[in-house]
């Protein structure tokens, strides 16, 4: 009984993992950015990261103040 359950669970797990195979494939395909990393590109990407962090921080702050 336990073996059958384990087998069933294993089959399910494989199916579940297979669903994410496409995402892994995309991640592999685009693993390395193809753009030439000039100082301007690096600076722009850094600024975008900072901008997003600030926005997420603001959203988090709003969420906390709403809960309170």
């Amino acid at each position: 009984m336990a073996d059958k359950f384990r087998e069933w669970l294993s089959r399910r797990r494989k199916k579940f993992v297979a669903r994410f195979e496409k995402i892994r494939e995309i991640n592999r395909k685009y693993a390395k950015p193809r753009i030439t990393m000039t100082p301007a590109v690096k600076f722009a990407l850094l600024m975008l990261r900072i901008y997003l962090l600030l926005l997420v921080g603001l959203l988090f702050y709003k969420f906390i103040t709403l809960i309170r």
């Binding site: 995309i26 693993a31 950015p33 990407l45």
Partner: peptide, 10 residues
């Protein structure tokens, strides 16, 4: 975007 900046930004 995926192609040029990688999967995170994509």
């Amino acid at each position: 975007i995926f192609d040029a900046f990688g999967s995170f930004w994509g």
